[in-house]
């Protein structure tokens, strides 16, 4: 196959396995990051509701 990076991966295929594990964890990490963003938005909204109630 190609030389360079692809050639290196061809000869050392354990790195392909590790790269795939990395891709899986990256996907899960991004999903958790998105969930965290949603939770922060909820927290902010809750704080605003509590603040409004206090003002009343």
């Amino acid at each position: 196959m190609e030389n360079g990076f692809f050639g290196f991966l061809e000869k050392n295929s354990i790195f392909i396995v590790m790269f795939i594990v990395l891709v899986v964890w990256l996907g899960i990490f991004l999903f958790l990051l998105n969930t965290d963003k949603r939770l922060k938005a909820i927290e902010k909204e809750l704080d605003e509701v509590i603040q409004k109630r206090k003002e009343k």
């Binding site: 061809e10 891709v23 899986v24 899960i28 999903f31």
Partner: peptide, 24 residues
């Protein structure tokens, strides 16, 4: 549904990387 989409994308991406080095 959202998790299903994420894992389908992951299966596609990891599968195509594997395909590149096994089937060309």
């Amino acid at each position: 549904l959202q998790l299903g989409m994420m894992f389908t994308i992951l299966a596609t991406v990891t599968g195509s990387i594997w395909a590149k080095f096994t089937w060309g």
